[in-house]
Design a binder for these strands. Structure first.
Lengths: 220, 220
DNA sequence: AGGCCAAATATTGTATACAATAGTATTGAC
DNA sequence: GTCAATACTATTGTATACAATATTTGGCCT
């Protein structure tokens, strides 16, 4: 998938925001950024437009674009939607998943386990992401799949923070097992609930998320 | 909410596509369109970028943007997601809806009825949209609300076609009653199911949608 | 001194000019 | 006559120049 310079820059700006390189509310100066990326304002503005439409920054006409790091409430809202989306994917996938996809899912899960044993968080994140993406894909609804991937990407940095909490990875793995079981049995109700619970921010997870808030940079 | 010319044009292009003014697969020529709208290519390109990111047209680098009218499969997929989103909104709203919102909901519903009695489809569409938007809003999740509104807007023209089928509007109204009832009783399970069913394309509605496909212009 | 209006400055929005890329047609060799 | 290479054309992508809008600063009046 080829990208022109403007789209490349859009990706890079996203990464920078996710990495916390900008203060909340900071204005993204077109001149400064165009100089930084070594391009003119035209492609840079296109990049900013893209980032704005993804909802990562806010664009105010004739004023500029301002980074908008989601606050705790907004994050909880996004996680609530994510958990419901995953739940739906699970519900549908339980009925529609193929044998080969089931095998791939088990493989990805095994790699997750291995990554934990090797104490390799980066590998875990990658395999975990794949695990979930397989489920999105097997929902048999490519529109749903795209939406889920979009939101997953946006929440990714916050999920990582969450998993740093003691015991969370182990719990997460146990939940994966339940999910795989439900999907292989074609039990859509179980799959639905297991996935909703797996992603939802409730109970301990709620406190962990709130506690970790604003401390992102400590864990990078 | 002020919009600059580029964003205005983006809206207009969307409308044109929804209205079926372009063939599926047709290339949106930048020069032609910029002349048509009386602006230069710069704001027009920004408009196209926006429309592309909304998923209404496909942009191929160095080739141009091509309109992509959703086919039956894609439509079914989008309706499936819409019905689930509405279902979630209903589930949450049942627990969170305020008294005043409930009143507004009943008011909107009454206006829907009135519109039918007066044989005024345009009024019905507007009030029906409001009815659903109140529920999105009362989900208490503004992120979910925004996503629901976005998809609602995209599916709007197709919903209209559907409602043209005999008996559909009456059935739709009866479903509204059930939804209001469930919400006023705070019954989240009923609200969830009623809304999913109300929006889902199943049974007769499936055949109607498929049958109506490609006949949009007959009903405008 | 404080507030308000106006000029200056900075920044976004748009137009035009130029560059790069993809698609098409023409010409030449076999 | 067909295929391929190359020049040509059309179209998108980017840079720069200009216009419009918002913000800031400085001066004036009260």
């Amino acid at each position: 998938m080829y990208l022109n310079r403007a789209d490349q820059i859009a990706e890079e700006i996203q990464e920078l925001i996710f990495a916390g390189s900008f203060e909340d509310g900071e204005r993204l100066d077109e001149n400064r950024l165009s100089e930084k990326f070594g391009v003119s304002r035209t492609p840079l503005r296109e990049a900013l437009k893209k980032v704005a439409l993804l909802g990562i920054v806010e664009k105010i006409p004739n004023r500029g674009v301002f980074v908008h790091q989601p606050g705790p409430i907004e994050l909880l809202e996004m996680f609530e939607v994510m958990s419901e989306l995953e739940s739906i994917c699970g519900k549908l996938a339980a009925k529609r998943i193929s044998e080969s996809a089931l095998k791939k899912l088990q493989k990805a899960n095994a790699k997750c386990k291995k990554a934990i044993k090797n104490n390799n968080p980066d590998a875990y994140y990658i395999e975990n992401e794949l695990f979930h993406k397989i489920i999105y894909n097997q929902s048999g609804n490519s529109f749903l799949e795209k939406e889920a991937i979009k939101l997953q990407k946006r929440l990714q940095p916050f999920r990582r923070v969450q998993l740093r909490f003691r015991g969370r990875i182990e719990q997460s793995m146990a939940e994966h097992e339940d999910i795989v079981k439900a999907l292989s049995f074609g039990n859509s109700t179980d799959a639905e609930n297991a996935l909703r619970n797996h992603v939802a921010v409730q109970g301990d997870k709620f406190h962990q998320l709130v506690a970790s808030f604003g401390k992102k940079e400590e864990y990078t």
